[in-house]
Amino acid sequence: MQYKTIRFSRTNQAEFISDLKSQVKAYFEANNISTYGNWKMVLKTVFMFTLYFAPYILMLCGVITNVWVILGMWALMGFGKSGIGLSVMHDANHGAYSRNQTVNKYLSYVMNMIGANSYIWKIQHNVLHHTFTNIEGMDEDIDPGKLMRLSPHAPRLKAHRHQHIYGWFLYGMMTFLWLTTKDFKQLVRYKKMGLMKAHKRSFSGVLTEAIVSKVLYYAYALALPLWLIPAPWYVILIGFFIMHFITGLMLGLIFQPAHVMPTSEFPVPDNSGSVENNWAVHQLFTTTNFAPGSKIFSWFVGGLNYQIEHHLFPNICHVHYKKISEIVRAKAQEYGLPYHCQKTFFDAVYEHARMLKQLGRNDQYAA
């Protein structure tokens, strides 16, 4: 099914989102604050870049020579890399980091700097995932290929029986796909789907950008350390692997429990491409929050534990999610709509693991 043929209901509780938007707008006006980032975002940006680049510079300059400390520095870079992606690039790609869209544009290119492609990810995430959340064949976040089954409508293979065990390793390998084949496969697919026309980008231009950015990434993130860091080459390769594995695992543990849960719905459009619910209501049925009481955790993951608020208001910076979550929860309850939330991050991971097991062992799953 082509993305242009899918239509959400315009009548099924359509008043929910207009009412909610009015209350959220009133909150910002009453407090005289901007929906964009503030000084806290600037400090966080400095912190995340420092967490990523400080260990890198210390290793290159020979300040750190102990093998185990070097591996520890690579691990810190992994947390820094994931922090940049979750807390800086993500808001910028949604145009929510700054009122100045030029700032958003260049901060979104940070994704190129850490091995992936900003433009391609924007189509996957902003267009497909945010529009068609949990719809099989459209939302690529629930389509990891044959190695895992993240949707009850995907084919179930024998190997999936153990995906709740091996799936965490595959999450850790996620960024290695970005470094190698994923961007190029997606670029070809998005061209065929006609998704590039709306952004006025040429296939050859994006392909060139992807190739150049990956070459530059390998040059500074791997070749330069192999040349300058005073450690055996295999230590550098192990460190590089550790960095990417930590990043991939963190991204998987933040994004997947938000949508692949026992409480999640996976709607199927009818033969005409119509989806039963209004788009905003659809987001409530397919999305889960977690750990709303953990300020430090929420700070580090860019507020993405408030996935419901993020999906309903992707153009609002994440520093505001906690406050507006109170409005969203109350409004959902008023309209008799679900507001799924796990008390802690570990509860969310446990429920996600339970969902992986159900999807791997049953054609249908029981919530």
Rank of each mutant, 00 (worst) to 15 (best):
F16E: 07
F16G: 03
F16W: 01
I17P: 08
D19Q: 11
L20H: 00
L20C: 01
L20E: 04
K21S: 14
K21N: 15
S22A: 15
S22V: 13
Q23M: 13
V24A: 07
V24H: 08
K25G: 15
K25N: 15
A26C: 10
Y27K: 06
Y27P: 03
E29N: 14
E29G: 11
N32G: 11
N32Q: 14
I33H: 03
S34P: 02
S34G: 02
T35F: 12
G37V: 05
N38A: 09
W39A: 13
W39I: 12
W39Y: 12
K40Y: 11
M41W: 10
M41Q: 12
V42H: 10
V42I: 13
V42P: 01
L43N: 10
L43G: 11
L43W: 12
K44V: 02
K44C: 00
K44M: 01
K44S: 04
T45A: 12
T45P: 05
T45D: 00
V46D: 04
V46I: 14
M48C: 09
F49M: 07
T50S: 13
T50P: 00
T50D: 03
L51A: 08
L51I: 07
Y52R: 01
F53R: 00
F53A: 05
F53S: 01
A54D: 02
A54Y: 04
A54M: 09
Y56H: 04
I57V: 12
I57D: 02
I57F: 10
I57S: 04
I57E: 00
I57P: 05
L58V: 02
L58Q: 03
C61Q: 11
C61A: 11
C61T: 13
C61H: 09
C61Y: 09
G62S: 03
G62A: 00
G62Y: 04
G62D: 00
G62L: 00
V63M: 09
I64Q: 08
T65M: 09
T65C: 09
V67F: 11
V67Y: 12
V69C: 11
V69S: 08
I70F: 01
I70D: 06
I70L: 11
G72E: 02
G72H: 05
G72V: 06
M73H: 08
M73Q: 06
M73K: 03
W74A: 10
W74G: 09
A75L: 10
A75F: 10
L76Y: 10
L76I: 14
L76E: 09
L76H: 09
M77C: 06
F79R: 08
F79T: 08
S82T: 14
S82D: 07
I84V: 15
I84T: 08
G85N: 15
